[in-house]
């Protein structure tokens, strides 16, 4: 009798024990959620996710804490998320370049197809090619023609070797049948702006920082790399309008480790997408000149796959790759 009681008790106990995770799922989140951010404090990646986390935290009733894990082009952050427990309490916010560009150039310790659950994208870089306001080239065609006809004369700058803005320029050169121009890597938008305005480089393949100079009329946009035309240069076409047909972009994404349970994914996806519609967040994007590129999970999976393929092709065609030792 006594034994039987004990057995029943134990069975019930085991059941309850087994049930805990299931019950917990019902009430997710029960404790604070940590968001690893791929950039250091202060950038758009960081400020954007902080704004969103605040809203999400209010909606979910648990703190959503952003912890910066910067370094190695956001790949450190990606790896941390890849190795986290898929319980929804550790997610990441970082640039998709860590998945769609970097792996084609260097070895990374994760697999973009196997290691992640894609939750949402919360913005995309505004990027494009600019020249000084008093430069003679009025559009991309004229600019490329001049560069082609004057080998070695054109000097353009970008944030660094192997970044999207560099790859795109070299791709345009390949499409033009090869252009002999010089690429000067200068890290940091403001330094590039200084170099362009000071006349040390003649063109700047830019990601973000250029927009305020366009607004001030100091520099001219020749082409926009985004899918939509720039608000402050509505007459300037996009690359795809000019017939390049590229599946590229550099969205900032919110991700979790693989096998994130469906209900948790749903909850996170919904709350973050809802937070992006808040006026405070939209105003923030407006202020930093970033694009409203809000994708949900399914859409993002597709986009990442396409963009990874797109960048891979560009990187191979242009031959930009870290050489094997």
């Amino acid at each position: 009798m006594n034994r039987k009681k004990m057995r029943v008790g134990m069975t019930v106990g085991v059941f309850i024990f087994l049930l805990i995770p299931v019950l917990a799922l019902g009430t997710y989140p029960e404790r604070e959620i940590t968001v690893y951010c791929g950039s250091s404090a202060g950038g758009v990646t960081d400020l954007g996710i902080r704004l969103l986390s605040e809203t999400v935290s209010k909606a979910l009733g648990q703190p959503v804490v952003v912890t910066n894990k910067p370094g190695a082009s956001h790949t450190i952050c990606a790896n941390l998320v890849a190795n986290a427990k898929p319980d929804g309490y550790t997610i990441g916010a970082l640039s998709a370049s860590a998945f769609t560009q970097v792996p084609h150039m260097r070895k990374v310790p994760y697999d973009l197809k196997k290691d992640f659950t894609w939750i949402a994208s919360y913005t995309d870089y505004t990027s494009g090619l600019v020249v000084r306001g008093d430069a003679p080239w009025k559009n991309l065609e004229e600019f490329l023609d001049y560069s082609k006809k004057n080998p070695g004369k054109m000097i353009y700058g970008s944030d660094g070797h192997g970044l999207g803005t560099h790859i795109l320029m070299e791709y345009m050169a390949v499409k033009k049948g090869g252009i002999d121009w010089k690429h000067v890597p200068i890290p940091g938008g403001p330094k590039l702006a200084t170099a362009l305005l000071g006349g040390h480089i003649q063109a700047w393949s830019a990601a973000g920082t250029h927009v305020k100079f366009i607004r001030e009329g100091k520099i001219r946009l020749l082409v926009s790399y985004n899918n939509e035309r720039l608000k402050y240069g509505p007459e300037v076409p996009t690359l795809n309008e000019l017939g390049y047909n590229l599946a590229i972009g550099t969205p900032l994404v919110i991700i979790g480790p693989k096998n994130l349970p469906q209900p948790i994914l749903k909850k996170l996806e919904e709350s973050f997408l809802k937070a992006m519609k808040e006026p405070a967040y939209l105003q923030f994007l407006e202020r930093v000149d970033f694009v409203q590129n809000f994708m949900g999970s399914a859409e993002l999976v597709k986009a990442i796959e396409e963009q990874s393929k797109g960048w891979k092709e560009l990187i191979e065609v242009t031959g930009i790759k870290e050489e094997k030792k």
Binding site: G71, A72, T75, I76, N79, M105, R106, P109, D159, G160, H161, G162, P185, P187, I320, K321, E322, E323
Partner: peptide, 13 residues
């Protein structure tokens, strides 16, 4: 960042 090479990193990210 000029060549995209890693220098003296010994595989430590």
């Amino acid at each position: 960042f000029i060549s995209g090479f890693e220098r003296f990193t010994y595989g430590i990210a």
